[in-house]
Design a binder for these strands. Structure first.
Lengths: 228, 228
DNA sequence: CGTAGAACTAAACAGGCGTTGATTTTTCTC
DNA sequence: GAGAAAAATCAACGCCTGTTTAGTTCTACG
């Protein structure tokens, strides 16, 4: 099925049937609404209105609401450089990818997934599988400590909590804070969890790093690093 | 079991009319269902069936579904000893109250509030107010560091994440782990966040006061004026 | 042009929702 | 026992849900 039905002819290679545009518009509206009000309240009628389309079109393009939802939360991880040989760097990548990229796009599939996972068992299952495969296992593989998987899962849960309360629930003190402040306070904790040894005095049974003085979270703002 | 057929002829208070029992049964069923499937899916019919009552009775006792929900999530904090003069102890109380008491009662109003807060703006607002007043401010009052409120909010968000993923989302690695292991790994992090300066594992701190190189400029033991 | 097929839409469906008012059953007092 | 009050139920309402069907408009190419 080659679809080079170009009326323009000369340049070719620009099919983009009109339906594709509509389909994308519906998908975007769906993600927006799913992330905003959750699965149940994001009715087909509401999504259709948001996309300036008839409700029947939504069904025509996606068959059913569940399929629309499934595609709305399907998502391949954009963080290729999540894990590095150096666990300490992994922490920074992880934190920054999760917290910063989210701020840039609050209607991302990830946001949809997190919000709906609390009330939809299907979304919860997707989240479980996705997080376990894409982050827990990858992070755990680079953690040089016992309970590697638990440490990875724990760090993921903590990031989930911070991101959720900051961007979805909009808890006052957390939502109004500067992202840099949040990262400055949080990063050392995650480092202590999944890169033990690089941080002093936070892990009971670790090799003595013997670096006195610096307390996690109270260090002066070093490494601004926020590439805008 | 307790058939309490006391009829008060002369003086005295009402003896737990039969309606009270029914009302309580409805409330319990409502909490169970709200926590289990969220606000929308916990229909009045489902709640009524769970309580072995006609759907009309639910309305008769609570007037409306929103009022039923509001009462289901209303809740006064049982943790009186949350905050102590010693921040390090506060961490333990906080963690254990949030994580352990939850395991004991997954259908608590708190669980209902957390689960529904992701899809109900009303629940989200209740959660914001409640958490800010009852935990963030109380914890922050005992944090001896700059960004006290942010630190408190951050720790709350992290606990929210852990509890949610362990008990509500049931993330494999986190749900299957021993609670003691979770606490052992997590506690130092929270201690570093809201009780900076206390060294974990080295010595059971005897008295707060003489710490080398503590925060300059900030008075220790800030005013407890936010109490009551 | 004409016509085929893609894109869109209006109208209706069966079923579930929260809620209501009237009615029946239970419980208590005399 | 009779009668009143409380509690529980029945049957229905109006509305909204996801989905279907049949029909209309638009678009591309002979």
């Amino acid at each position: 099925m080659t679809e080079d039905r170009t009326k323009t002819g000369a340049t070719g290679a620009e099919p983009e049937r009109k339906g594709e545009r509509t389909r994308r518009r519906i998908m975007e509206a769906a993600r927006r609404k799913f992330a905003e009000v959750g699965y149940e309240r994001a009715t087909i009628r509401v999504i259709a209105a948001e996309a300036h389309v008839d409700k029947a079109s939504v069904i025509q393009y996606f068959g059913t609401k569940q399929e629309l939802f499934r595609e709305a939360v399907s998502w391949h991880v954009p963080i290729e450089e999540l894990t590095t040989p150096d666990p300490a760097r992994t922490v920074d990548n992880y934190l920054r990818a999760m917290l910063s990229s989210w701020a840039a796009d609050p209607d991302s599939p990830m946001a949809v997934l997190l919000r709906t996972s609390m009330t939809s068992e299907e979304a919860a299952e997707l989240l479980r599988r996705h997080v376990t495969k894409e982050t827990v296992e990858r992070v755990a593989a680079n953690v040089d400590a016992p309970d590697a998987r638990l440490r990875a899962a724990l760090s993921g849960a903590m990031m989930f909590g911070i991101a959720t309360q900051r961007y979805l629930l909009r808890m006052p003190d957390l939502a109004e804070a500067d992202l840099d402040d949040v990262l400055r306070l949080a990063a050392p904790l995650f480092r202590a969890l999944i890169a033990p040894g690089s941080e002093p005095g936070s892990e009971p049974r670790t090799e003595p790093g013997a670096e006195p003085g610096s307390e996690p979270g109270t260090e002066p703002r070093s490494d601004p690093g926020t590439g805008s």
